[in-house]
Structure formats: C-alpha cells, structure tokens
Computed example of a mutant assay.
Amino acid sequence: MDCVLCEVSDGVADVRLNRPDQLNALNDAMFAQLIAVGERLLDEPGLRAVVLSGAGRAFCAGLDFTAFRAQADAEPWRPEAVAQADGQETPAAPRDDFGVPGLVLPRGQKAVWVWQALEVPVIAAVHGFALGGGLQIALGADIRLVSADARLGVLEMDWGLTPDMCGTQILPRLVGLDVAKELALTARKVTGEEAVRIGLATRVCPDPRAEALAMANTIARRNSDAVRAAKSLLNRAWDAEAMKAGFRAERDFMERNVGSPLQREAVRTRLESMKRP
C-alpha cells in the first residue's frame, strides 16, 4: 500500500498521508514517499496549488513507535543508519537542498521543506492529531486549516529530542519566540481553536479537507504568475541565511543527541509511562 497518495486534477494536487491504521505515523516509507511526491510536484506541469491531508482519523500522529523503541535500545533507526550497519550504501536523493542552496538537508527536513520549495501554495488540512513530526509537516505548508477539536503539539521533548524537521525555524515565525519556547519545552498539546488563536494555524473549519480543496480550486483560477510571485515575495520576509544556519544547527544537534544516554533514558521513561493505566 502506498503511504502517500497523490492525484492532480485541474491544477490542484490532492496529497494524502495514507497509513490510517497507524494514524499516519511517520515510518521510513512515509518519509521516502513524502519526499518523492514533493519532488515530483516540483516538476508537475500546470500545477497551481496543493492540498496536504491525512486519511482516516488523523493528519499525522508523529514518528512511528518502532523508531522510538530502536532509540531506546541504541539500535539504528534511520534508513541511512540501518544501511550503514548492514554494510550497504545509501544513494543520495536526486535533490539535496530543496531551495536552501549550499546545504544538504536530511530526510526529516526535506519532508517538510519540499512544500515550501514548491512555487505554488500548499494548504494543510489538519484533523485529529498533528503531533511532533506530523505537526512539523503541517508547518511546511503555507496555510493550515484545522478542525476545532484537532490536537496539535510539539512533542519531541517527551522523547528527549528537539524538533529537527524545520520546526525550530518555522515555529517562532508563526507564534512568536516565547510561545514557541513554551510549546517546545513543555510538549503541551493545543486544540485547533487555540492553535488559531496563537498563530499556529490559519482558520478553524468543520471539514478542513473540503475547505482546503475549495480554497485550492479558487487559487487555481487566479493568475498563476501572480500567485507564484506572491508566495515568493512573502517568503522573502524570512531571513534566508538565518534559516539556513538554523537548519544546519537542527541537524547537527540531532546527530549528537539521538542515542545519547540522556535521550535513551527519556525514551525509556516515556515508553514506560505509556504502559501505565
């Protein structure tokens, strides 16, 4: 089964995370297919807008638990690390920078930043859970439509981690530095309604996916040159060099931190707490 579905109709790409039985948790295949779909859309002729959503009961519940269990046991958990442990070579992705020249992005950052690398608007439709890496994928979109009862959270601290999928750079630009720190340091979950109040989401909708598709089709009827220019010009408000340095710092800390004694202990503690009634 494909972990990511993509259909393009009338210039609108309908992209759906498709592991509904696992609340669309991120595993190796999901990362690979998210990046592959994003790369494909970079070259999609006539593309005018993208809708990013999740099948089933959630947008994305974050990293698959198999990765956390591997971290707790000090086992390789990333595809490149597994391949190296087996003595295999992992081929480089066809595109490494995804619009961040001079910096090779790791797969987590690619899975988020590819949506910003697209010249057309990307609208995330969030329902159920958008947690940890799942929230960071939604942060890669230009607009986030959420259900009122959605649950969003920066949960990495629960696992002894920091956000490493562009979250440390995008989050404070949306909610402000102090709120970004509160969310990242406490791992507090917020509802869709609170997410809109603090700037984490754009608007509450009864049916985020239907609203996102309607918005995408409206945008698709606009002057496509003007739409692309508007996204590019608005994104220039971000300091590109500062963001590049932040991406590099995210990657470097993640490489040092994962598998460290403190991080492994945090994962074991979290896994044990989840077993309790």
Rank of each mutant, 00 (worst) to 15 (best):
M1G: 08
D2P: 01
C3H: 11
C6E: 06
G11F: 05
V12N: 00
V12A: 01
V15D: 00
P20V: 01
P20I: 02
N27E: 08
L34A: 04
V37W: 07
E39P: 10
R40D: 11
L41Y: 09
E44L: 08
G46Y: 11
L47P: 01
A49P: 08
S53H: 00
G54C: 09
A55H: 01
G56T: 00
G56I: 02
A61V: 05
L63A: 03
L63F: 02
L63P: 06
D64H: 11
A67F: 05
A70L: 02
A72T: 12
W77H: 04
P79L: 04
V82P: 15
V82M: 06
V82W: 06
A83Y: 13
A83I: 05
D86I: 02
Q88Y: 13
E89R: 12
P91W: 11
P91V: 06
A93R: 06
R95W: 06
D96P: 11
D97K: 05
F98K: 01
V100F: 06
P101L: 10
L103G: 15
V104T: 13
V104A: 13
P106M: 12
R107M: 05
Q109I: 13
K110R: 10
V112L: 08
W115A: 01
W115V: 02
W115Q: 02
Q116C: 13
E119G: 08
A125P: 00
V126W: 14
G128H: 01
G128F: 06
A130Q: 03
G132A: 07
L135Y: 07
L139R: 07
I143A: 03
I143K: 05
L145I: 14
V146A: 03
D149T: 14
R151M: 15
L152K: 02
G153R: 02
V154G: 00
D158V: 03
G160N: 08
L161T: 07
T162F: 15
P163G: 01
P163Q: 07
M165G: 03
C166Y: 14
R173N: 11
V179E: 10
A180C: 06
E182I: 06
T186M: 11
T186N: 05
A187H: 01
K189G: 14
K189H: 15
G192Q: 14
G192R: 12
G192W: 13
E194N: 09
A195R: 11
I198H: 15
L200Y: 03
A201C: 12
T202M: 10
T202K: 05
R203Y: 08
R203E: 15
V204S: 07
V204I: 13
A210P: 02
E211N: 14
L213M: 01
I219N: 09
N223Q: 13
D225Q: 08
A226V: 09
W238D: 14
D239Q: 04
M243V: 11
A245P: 10
A245Q: 15
G246Q: 09
G246F: 03
F253E: 06
M254R: 07
R256M: 08
V258C: 09
V258Y: 05
G259K: 02
S260I: 04
R264P: 00
R264N: 01
R264A: 00
E265K: 04
A266P: 00
T269A: 09
R270M: 12
L271I: 15
K275T: 09
K275R: 07
